[in-house]
């Protein structure tokens, strides 16, 4: 595909036509009204493949206005290929301002992370969701899972957690860790690390979740209770590292492991690239403060 920076002729603002956007916005409103409930919607074919963020992209397209500033992250970082690609898509089709700074963004589309910086009321966080159904891996049939949600038959989620503890001594779910929203619906937070789960609770920003292939939208309105499932005697815990970020020295952020060579040397750096950069600008230093070269 040849790139053309002058925008895309023959396509509406932000790619989708206005009728489709309205349909998606109606689904979003319903989702906000019933926190954690998966609203079916008429997901469209997008020019990116299913599983690569089409749900998030459709929500972003539906809520984006000309005065918005968009940030796109994947694995916490603005410079991973998928994030670059989606950001490029919206700057081509909507011509909106883009940023890598969490504080400057009004709309943030994310895959697999929540920014470290606390979000505000005037921001919207849009998650890309591969499998929206938290009960799926205990019960693959949709007819049954919808019934289980309706009747709040959630015991089976704890069966999974029980099984983890029995086999490993710990709850072994580390990402896409199921939560209960507003004391009602059990919800898949998308494959964010459980490190990020506590950030969902009582968040001032609106959180929207889009699953394109599975055709579902769900939401957590601002300031909503979100609790991670656990046992009284095995309470929910987030990941901890012995290391700190090698670049900025942060000890409170999610760290990516970077393999340096095949003799086992590795370093740990913030997965949230904006957070790390801002800290370094403020003068924080880690053990290996020099910049790493870009990946080929």
């Amino acid at each position: 595909m040849r790139m053309n920076d002058s925008g895309l002729d023959g396509y509406n603002f932000a790619y989708l036509d206005e009728q489709t956007k309205r349909m998606i916005r109606r689904a979003i409103l319903k989702a906000i009204a019933i926190p954690g409930y998966q609203v079916p919607f008429g997901s469209r074919e997008m020019p990116l493949p299913y599983g690569w963020g089409t749900g998030g992209i459709q929500i972003t397209a539906a809520v984006l206005g000309t005065d918005d500033t968009l940030k796109v992250i994947d694995q916490g970082s603005d410079d991973t290929t998928n994030a670059v690609n989606i950001r490029r898509f919206f700057s081509r089709t909507a011509g909106v301002a883009t940023t890598t700074k969490t504080t400057e963004a009004s709309v943030i589309q994310t895959r697999h992370r929540i920014p470290e910086k606390k979000l505000r009321e005037d921001q919207v966080l849009i998650y890309q969701v591969p499998i929206p159904e938290p009960l799926r891996f205990m019960e693959p049939r949709e007819i049954e899972t919808r019934k289980m949600h309706a009747l709040q038959e959630y015991g089976v989620m704890h069966v999974k957690l029980y099984e983890d503890i029995a086999r490993f001594g710990h709850i072994a779910t580390t990402y896409n860790y199921p939560v209960r929203v507003n004391d009602r619906y059990v919800m898949a937070p998308s494959p964010i690390p459980k490190f990020d789960n506590p950030k969902m609770n009582d968040m001032p920003a609106l959180q929207l979740f889009g699953a394109g292939r599975e055709k579902r939208i769900y939401a957590i309105p601002p300031y909503t209770k979100v609790s991670s499932l656990d046992f009284d005697d095995h309470p929910f815990e987030v990941q901890k590292w012995d290391e700190t970020c090698a670049l900025c020295g942060a000890s409170d952020s999610f760290l990516d492991e970077i393999v340096l060579n095949d003799t086992g040397d590795r370093m740990f750096v913030c997965s949230d690239s904006d957070y790390c950069e801002e800290r370094r600008e403020l003068g924080y230093k880690g053990t290996q403060p020099e910049e790493q070269g870009d990946a080929a």
Partner: peptide, 23 residues
């Protein structure tokens, strides 16, 4: 599985990050 690996990530020729718009 890792952001960076010995030898680096090499994207090469791929349709992965193309926008599926008829050219």
């Amino acid at each position: 599985t890792f952001k960076d690996i010995p030898g680096g990530q090499v994207l090469g020729a791929t349709y992965d990050y193309t926008h599926r718009l008829l050219d």
